[in-house]
Amino acid sequence: MSELTQTVDVCITLNGHSIKATIPARENLADFIRHRIGLMGTNVGCEQGICGACTIRLNGDSVRSCLTLAAQANGHTVETIEGLTDSGEISQLQEAFHRNNAAQCGYCTPAMLITATELLNSKTEISRDKIREYLSGNLCRCTGYHAIIDAVEEVAEAQNNGR
């Protein structure tokens, strides 16, 4: 039998900081971020990939942190809403959310911002339909979709005018 343990040593770059930890193999990335590191902006809704509330960035791509084992993020780069807020990368979109009243209870908001930012950064033509499609994996139970889409559209239009 080869040596197998239920713990894993990981080194994850989280919001620019290198974090080393010994963690249970079954710990998902959402729990790692929330409970081990204490960053509460990554929310957990369904733990089966349906609701999208736990969306974070892994190596630059939006992914579900509830469907990613922290062990699989070993050696990789993770960005959460806290890191993206501090860097200022999403400030324009955050202001648009505020202006459009796009955050109601706020539970889905961090993941909405991260997913919408990926679309805004994609250098593709952005239509209202495209925004709807891109955000289709993020549930908002306050039914605030119109305001959210308005906010994303506003930033997309500002980007277009700036080009």
Binding site: L58, D61, S62, V63, R64, T115, E118, Y134, G137
Partner: peptide
């Protein structure tokens, strides 16, 4: 096939 965050992984 699924949503963008799922397709990314």
């Amino acid at each position: 096939v699924a949503h963008v965050a799922i397709r990314n992984r």
